[in-house]
Design a protein around this nucleic acid. Structure first.
Lengths: 201, 201
DNA sequence: ATTATTCTGGACTAGTGGGTCTAGTTTAAT
DNA sequence: ATTAAACTAGACCCACTAGTCCAGAATAAT
């Protein structure tokens, strides 16, 4: 009985893709099961047969989205210290102000109240990964005598906070302005300098 | 004709209070006009006569909430540099992890897509005030020779980012843990030290 | 007491949405 | 060809909601 799984996987993928796009763009309540079905080119009943109800579909969609956001691209922490920090700051700085990233984050944060497991997934696949990786890196560089971060996780938290900065707050609230945008790269370089001033061994 | 305004102001206040509490706690779509009316001890029609429709009521509620969050309490930037920064970090650090603050922020960020003017109000009354005040303070201290922040607004952005840090991310996603919580104060003191190491003249 | 306004409570409209059910069709394995 | 499963299209149920309307009660100014 491995027969019908062929067709079924296709439909499932279509439904999930549609759900991701629609939920991330418009949120949970704004999207109806009919809209998902139509967008997936599938009947309403098929949606229900693949995902039992709206909340389950939503959870599946968010989890899928978290995994496909491409966070890992920011996390190549290798090579010379300053180069590495700079590259990370630029990449991660872009990542967190991307539209998809922001929308997903806001959605999870907002729904965190009544769907706790959702926020947990997002945190585990997002912020937690970054902070952990970065603090591991800082601990390593401290061990090597390049940095002096007695509390690597605090240093990671500080560095990430700085990289987010005003731009993240503005982007989150759709209040990005020209000035913050064009200064962004210089600001991030400045963060690296400032961080090294405080923590370089 | 200043007569009926006596009674009317009372009802309006009751409605607004109920709306603030309910909207901030449960969001826009989850709250119905009937619930607001019942919570305010008022008839549905009275709600409509005071605030034309749901969106207007929502906007009024959010604006009122933003003004009453008590952000200003964090902003007493006077006295000796390190003491002042420490006090600010502790106060503002508490403020941004408070339940009411977080819920309001998340709500505004989430609704920013389809209610732009709402996010604008929140940004103007919240983040913008803090960044501006802090950068004004840094500029002043630099002028006085106590600090060396050639770009005060960047320094403000960095300091605020650090103060938020992991705790803010966790709180936002209902993922606060014991460790982050008990270490919070020490972390904030560490931020001040780190900041001064990088920027003290 | 009169009068204008507000407020109440409930009925009403018109639309929406989650979820189920069914009858008939397609699909693919045997 | 048969069979079992998945799929479709649409009707259907039930509960809910923004907003309107209205008749009567309360309120306050004159």
């Amino acid at each position: 009985m491995i027969k019908n799984r062929t067709k079924s996987e296709d439909k499932r993928r279509l439904i999930l893709q549609a759900a991701v796009r629609l939920f991330v763009e418009h949120g949970f309540t704004q999207i109806t099961m009919v809209k998902v079905a139509e967008h997936a080119g599938v009947s309403k009943q098929t949606v229900y047969s693949h995902f039992g109800n709206k909340e389950d579909l939503f959870a599946a969609a968010i989890e899928h989205k978290c995994l496909s956001l491409g966070l890992a691209d920011s996390l190549h922490l290798e090579g010379e210290l300053k180069t590495c920090l700079t590259l990370f700051a630029l990449r991660f700085g872009s990542f967190i102000t991307e539209d998809e990233t922001l929308k997903t984050h806001k959605l999870c944060a907002f729904e965190a109240n009544h769907l706790p497991q959702l926020a947990e997934i997002f945190f585990r696949l997002g912020p937690d990964v970054v902070i952990s990786e970065l603090s591991r890196y800082f601990a390593y560089k401290t061990e090597k005598g390049k940095l002096n971060t007695p509390e690597p996780r605090w240093a990671a938290s500080q560095f990430l906070g700085m990289v987010m900065g005003e731009a993240r707050l503005r982007a989150e609230l759709n209040q990005m302005d020209e000035r913050t945008l064009v200064e962004r790269e210089q600001y991030l370089l400045n963060c690296v300098d400032m961080f090294l001033r405080a923590y370089q061994a």
